[in-house]
Simulated assay, not measured.
Amino acid sequence: MADDDLLLGYEKDENELWLWDDLPELHMEVGYRINRLLHFERSAYQEISVAETSAFGRMLVLDGVPQITEKDGYIYNEMISHIGLLTHPNPQYVAMIGGGDCGPAREAARYPDIKRIDVVEIDPRVTDVCQRLFNRSRAAALDPRITIFHEDGARWIQKQRERIDVLLIDRSDPFGPAAVLYSRAFYQHVYSSLSYDGIAVFQSGSPFFDMKGLKTTYHRLQSLFPIVRTYVTSIPSFPGGIWSFTVASKRHDPLAANTDKLPAGTRYMNKAIARSAFALPEYIQDALRT
């Protein structure tokens, strides 16, 4: 294990170890007290660590930035997954870019009629670490319908043509290798990869701290898809708490989704939330209209 001072984002304060998520564009930092560091390595793509935090249990950290936690990760995974899966009347082929922890794949596997679930994660070490240190990830990897491709998602999507029924874009922040996942060209490739009535769901950031990013996602998708809707949820470990996702659909409106299809066993998503998540605060509605 490397010395603590070599890890991005980690700092010692007297006898305590903290992870600081530096958000310079917001003029703030968010700190997480670390009980112990469970894993650290530098892969070919990034620095990977898993920390046991006081507030959120185990946390996956990439290049010093928290990604998902043991305690509230189910909220993110359920919210990025079930809206699109409920909206499509009969999804057979589901794919996701990112999500190497297999959380969204685990949610898709709750639907028995889905025949194929592809996970595209650029870094094989993320998958390996998550399967070893997050129990739910190991369980998801055992489903025979799930295939993991360790490829660049922006390149993988260009090879897909009118096949995917529901595509989940579990992308990280819009800088570094993930920046291409926010480009106009990428959105066009997403559109081309979907079946005639396909649906794509994008992680679209904090509407409070990054309204510009949300607006850009929303309007670029509007230029391609006839139906585009943003919805929100609350994720305690994320900066600001409130988080957005944007669904783009070729034919089916998520406001008319069949919520009776929602499988048992979810911890956050229910029929009411599948509707109410689209009830946006006025400041978000105003911003998306401009």
Rank of each mutant, 00 (worst) to 15 (best):
Asp113Cys: 11
Thr246Arg: 10
Asp4Gln: 07
Leu60Ser: 04
Asp123Met: 06
Ile235Met: 05
Ala139Lys: 13
Ala95Ile: 06
Gly103Glu: 01
Ser81Ala: 11
Met28Thr: 15
Ile227Asp: 04
Val247Pro: 07
Glu52His: 14
Ala248Lys: 08
His88Arg: 11
Ala277Ile: 10
Tyr283Gly: 07
Phe209Glu: 08
Ala105Pro: 03
Phe209Pro: 02
Val126Trp: 01
Glu52Asn: 14
Pro104Trp: 03
Arg251Phe: 12
Ala279Pro: 00
Ile97Tyr: 01
Thr87Met: 04
Gly9Asp: 11
Val228Gln: 13
Lys215Ala: 15
Arg145Met: 10
Ile48Tyr: 02
Tyr74His: 15
Tyr231Pro: 04
Val65His: 11
Leu181Met: 04
Asp72Leu: 07
Arg36Lys: 15
Lys271His: 06
Glu282His: 09
Pro174Gln: 08
Tyr187Glu: 05
Cys102Ala: 13
Gln222Arg: 15
Val119Arg: 04
Lys12Ala: 10
Arg132Gln: 13
Gln92Leu: 09
Ile80Pro: 00
Asp13Tyr: 03
Ser193Glu: 02
Tyr32Lys: 05
Pro239Thr: 11
Asp63Glu: 03
His39Asp: 03
Arg36Gly: 06
Val50Pro: 08
Ile164Thr: 05
Phe238Lys: 12
Ser237Val: 09
Asp3Val: 07
Leu214Ala: 10
Val228Met: 12
Glu25Trp: 07
Ser223Met: 14
Gly99Trp: 02
Ser137Asn: 05
Asp63Gln: 02
Pro174Ser: 11
His82Arg: 00
Glu16Cys: 04
Glu14Met: 09
Asp72Lys: 07
Gly153Leu: 05
Ile227Cys: 07
Val228Ser: 12
